[in-house]
């Protein structure tokens, strides 16, 4: 007589626990597709750059100030937000509020400095395909920073309303993951637009 396989699980979690939940997967998918998007943006830059004569890059020696400190600021914010998430994990609401709040401020400063950089660039949006790519890529990134800021603000508000606990915190983990992504992408954008000209690309 054949035997029936029957799943008889013991206690199962109901809904997301920790970072273990469908929402986290969902954000991971979002990040995958957005990472691809940035990949294609950078591909466009390298492709156009490689096929154009020297002089295509309108600013062959991009200024390192304030770009470098701004980059450091953004990367540091990843650490802060991680510390905030730890606050939720440990049930320390104050730490979480502080973490999300400071991250928000750091992100906002980054955005402001970036806008300042746009303003002082010696070329306009449609000057040539280099300038268009520069502005489009950084603007795409900026859109992600703004989305990240909205998420951080929401996390801050929800934390203040005491929506989360160490166990029920998938929203926090997913939001924080997104912010890390925003930061990591910037490293690639920064390297491409600010560093590769010094390494000889396009010059």
């Amino acid at each position: 007589m054949a035997e029936h396989a029957l799943a008889r699980p013991g206690q199962l979690a109901v809904g997301p626990i920790g970072r273990n939940g469908l929402g986290y997967w969902g954000v991971a998918m979002l990040i995958a597709t957005e990472a691809a998007l940035f990949g294609y943006l950078l591909f466009s830059y390298y492709y156009n750059g490689a096929t154009q004569p020297p002089g295509w890059i309108l600013e062959p020696a991009p200024k390192m100030f304030p770009a470098v400190p701004n980059t450091v600021l953004l990367l540091a914010s990843s650490g802060v937000v991680w510390w905030g998430e730890k606050g939720i994990e440990a049930g320390r609401r104050g730490q979480a509020l502080l973490g999300f709040g400071i991250t928000f401020l750091m992100g906002a400063i980054f955005a402001a400095v970036q806008i300042y950089e746009w303003l002082i660039k010696p070329f306009g949006f449609a000057a040539n395909s280099y300038s268009s790519l520069y502005f489009t890529t950084t603007a795409f990134h900026m859109a992600h920073v703004i989305a990240g800021l909205i998420i951080l603000a929401a996390l801050f508000g929800w934390t203040a309303l005491d929506y989360f606990s160490p166990r029920r915190r998938i929203v926090v983990s997913a939001g924080v993951l997104y912010w890390h992504f925003v930061d990591v992408v910037w490293v690639f954008v920064f390297t491409t637009y600010y560093l590769t000209p010094y390494l000889g690309f396009g010059t």
Partner: peptide, 9 residues
């Protein structure tokens, strides 16, 4: 903008 325009690089 000139992403695809040879005249604009």
């Amino acid at each position: 903008t000139g992403f695809y325009q040879p005249s604009a690089g």
